[in-house]
Amino acid sequence: MSRSMTSAPEWRLLGMTVLLALLAGCGPTTVKVQGSFPEPLMEPVPLTLGVWYTKDFANHEFFDEAKSRSESGWVVNTGEAQVAMWDTLLAGMFSRLVHMKGKPAPGQMNQVVNAVLIPHVDELQYAIPQHTNVKVYEIWMRYRFELVTNAGKPIAEWTMPAYGKTPTAFLRSDEAAVNLAAVMALRDAGANFATSFTRVPAVAEWLDGRQVGKVPAVARDMPAEVGADSDTVAVPVIVNGDPSAGQAVEEIKEVE
């Protein structure tokens, strides 16, 4: 009489694993875009620029349903790479880059900057050789930028395209090729922004109308009372690095 080496629960576990593996094979192809982005080589624009990434932008992903069984669906996650690229580009392009604590709006407590840039990805399209019969992987994006004051007052709003492509290559997977095409599209976005920012008519008009290096009048026009900011917490007074010194100052005042 032979004894079974595998118990019934183990068979069920094995079955579940195989089923999950098979189902995973049917899911969409996910690409989390990863790449390194160089600093721009240019004279910095003499502005302190704030940047605010919306949740949609920082977690941006593009999802495309499969059109047939032979074509798998795609999820292209560009959020992390977008933030990495724009942080590197803007830090090199402007005298100072500040990440804002909150979205600029009347009553929103924030750092004082000359203007705040809010980027959006309005549209993303991709093409792979199975779609086009051309041996090139392509990614196309349309950005929308808002340039606003600290108080959220619009200065300029404009759109900008970006395009990246990469040819098919021996032993390169679809995922790697789409990732490379997305990195090229991000680099193109950076190049397009860096070379066209000061030529956007509304931006050029704003730059002409202000003395570079000073806080513009529109940004100083802050409300008398500012609203609560969840990211801002009360900080105790610290004198010469001693937290208790603040209390000591109060005690001295009381004695006087």
Binding site: E39, P40, L41, M42, A191
Partner: peptide, 27 residues
């Protein structure tokens, strides 16, 4: 090293464009 001046969108197409590049001191 010369980003963003040699990307497909911005790369010089004619030798005359070199002057435009060299007009920028960092480049």
């Amino acid at each position: 090293a010369l980003y963003p001046w040699f990307e497909p969108r911005t790369a010089p197409l004619h030798p005359g464009d070199i002057d435009r590049l060299l007009a920028q001191e960092p480049v």
